[in-house]
Simulated scan of single mutants.
Amino acid sequence: MSHTKKVRFVTLGLSLAIIATLLISLNMGTMRIAPIDVFQTLIGNGTGQNQLILFDFRLPRMVIAILIGAGMAISGAILQSVTHNELADPGILGINSGAGFAVVFFLYLTQNNPVSTVFILPLTALIGAVLAAVLIYSISWKNGVTPIRLILVGIGINAAFSALIIVFQLRMDPDNFTQATIWLSGNISGTDWSYTLALFPWILILVPFAIYKASTLDTLNLGDETAQGIGTAVEKERIILLLVAVALAGASVSVGGAIAFLGLVTPHLARKLVGVRHRHSLVTAALLGALLLLAADTIGRTILAPSEIPVGLVVSLIGGSYFIYLLMKS
Rank of each mutant, 00 (worst) to 15 (best):
L67S: 10
L93V: 08
L131W: 04
T11F: 05
G154E: 12
R8C: 10
R238P: 06
R58V: 01
N50E: 14
L206K: 10
A159M: 12
L293G: 01
T219F: 00
L242K: 11
Q169M: 14
A73S: 13
G320C: 09
N176Y: 11
L59I: 14
I157L: 07
V314D: 04
V38H: 13
F39N: 05
L327P: 02
M31F: 12
A20K: 05
L54K: 02
A249E: 04
I78G: 01
E308D: 08
V255N: 07
V167I: 15
I24H: 03
V207N: 09
G98T: 11
W141R: 00
N143V: 05
V253I: 13
F57P: 02
R271Q: 06
V253G: 05
Y137H: 14
L59D: 08
T298Q: 05
Q111N: 08
G156F: 04
M62K: 03
G69R: 06
S194T: 07
N113T: 13
D37I: 05
D192S: 14
I318F: 06
L26V: 03
N112G: 07
A73F: 00
L93S: 07
T216S: 11
S97W: 02
S194M: 04
Q169D: 10
R238E: 10
A270F: 00
T298H: 05
I165H: 02
A77V: 12
P60S: 02
F105P: 01
S75C: 08
P201F: 08
I36L: 09
L126D: 06
I92S: 06
A214W: 07
L294I: 07
L14T: 08
L243T: 12
E225F: 11
G13N: 03
V265M: 15
V118W: 07
V315K: 03
L248T: 10
I188G: 08
T181F: 00
T11P: 03
S321V: 10
S330P: 00
M328G: 12
I303K: 09
T11D: 10
